[in-house]
Nucleic acid binder design. Structure first.
Lengths: 231, 231
DNA sequence: CTAACAAGCGTTTTGATAACGTTTAAGACT
DNA sequence: AGTCTTAAACGTTATCAAAACGCTTGTTAG
């Protein structure tokens, strides 16, 4: 080690949004803190970063521990750096966020670790500044959903257009026009229609689609800007 | 201290954009690194965060030291958290960015500290991952300039519409249509026209304007979204 | 065979903006 | 004094995208 300077405790906290397709509800993962101060209070999932550990690796480690998941959407979001934000000591927290599709398996994995999924409108009080983190994450979800293909991270590989539409309803907190929504989505030419129907929500059934991520990323490289801001 | 866990070195680095109105050029502040490894190489300005010091305070401290400025646009931008990003040791860097108006005084203050202002298209090679930081900052400047009132941070209190237009030309890297630009800017009703003219660039002179920041922030609170994406 | 209903498709209206032309103010030049 | 020059300021039209809304289709349940 070349540098000589006091060091800091650095934590990563992770705001995980999980969409439950069967209930069509957007949820956030919280867990009961095990260390003092505030042991037993609800908080986001998190961990200190270890010496020599990449920050992104620490984030993946935490997410894996509480959800069992690898290879899902996981990005840094914001740094909380006030020296007095945690009465237990000067801890810098780097908030991350993750988007996953929720199923019963994840719910079990969570419970095993003292964690629970809460619908976004039924969050309990959170410890420290974790309430602010949730608020920021909700804002970012809404704004980013308009310009990035985040919706597909919250749904299974195959989904119907009505399902996708109701997901965006949940994110934006209002009813979109299904006809304009469909038109906009299809106009991107990023969805592949399959020859299968899902009949879980209607007699007629709705065609399943897949999001062509490769095509999107190729276009994005060339400067393509997605715009999913529909009324 | 309640927690027992290994700590990390945490630095803040600051990408400072300075707009020189007289030369109508956008610049970035770089300085010659004083510590090994890579002493003498160009880098962004930065510092380690001290024990008990707020991150934002550390950022302000660095900016003040190299520019003499307080109370200017300064925000966190991105965390660089790879354990091996610095061969001198595991140092987490929290990139910040700042936007200021450049004048001769700031150039002198910079030189006193071994720092220099470089036009954005004439940046030298930077140390470590600081080149990535500049690239990210440039991207963010372009995208954020479309939805936030960043331009006014780079200009003096009073400016003319042609000056503002040429600033955005520099940011976007292309010539905007002056008539559409003016219309869009005025349509926000966030500019106050003064009874003074600036004649530095024409015989006729151009009316000076002020940006009504209070009005903008009031509107922004209520959900107003600025849109300065003009052709 | 018909009722019910979500899914899917289509048309009209509206409004924003890109593209471009014209007028104005003031110093420079004769 | 009158004309020229030039950036600044103002205005108009054509184009296109999206908001608003109506209609048809496919399937099952009764």
């Amino acid at each position: 080690m070349t540098y000589s300077h006091p060091k800091l405790l650095v934590a990563i906290d992770c705001l995980v949004f999980g969409y439950d397709l069967s209930e069509e509800s957007l949820n956030i993962l919280a867990f009961q803190r095990k260390v003092e101060p505030y042991a037993g209070d609800w908080s986001l999932i998190g961990s200190f970063i270890n010496e020599g550990e990449d920050m992104s690796q620490a984030a993946r480690r935490v997410l894996k521990q509480f959800t069992g998941l690898d290879d899902v959407f996981l990005e840094q979001l914001h740094v909380y750096g006030n020296a007095d934000r945690d009465p237990g000591g000067h801890v810098l927290s780097i908030l991350h966020w993750s988007l996953i599709k929720l199923d019963d398996l994840h719910k079990e994995t969570a419970e095993k670790h003292g964690a629970r999924w809460f619908p976004i409108d039924q969050m309990p009080e959170l410890v420290l500044d974790h309430g602010d983190m949730v608020q920021l994450g909700m804002q970012k979800l809404v704004t980013n959903a308009k310009t990035r293909p985040l919706g597909f991270e919250l749904l299974p590989e195959e989904f119907t257009l009505p399902q996708l539409k109701r997901l965006y309803d949940a994110i934006y907190g209002r009813q979109l026009d299904d006809r304009n929504f469909r038109k906009r989505m299809l106009s991107t030419e990023l969805l592949e229609k399959l020859d299968k129907k899902d009949k879980s929500t209607s007699k007629k059934g709705a065609f399943l689609h897949k999001f062509n991520k490769e095509k999107y990323e190729e276009l994005a490289e060339k400067g393509y800007l997605l715009d999913l801001d529909v009324k």
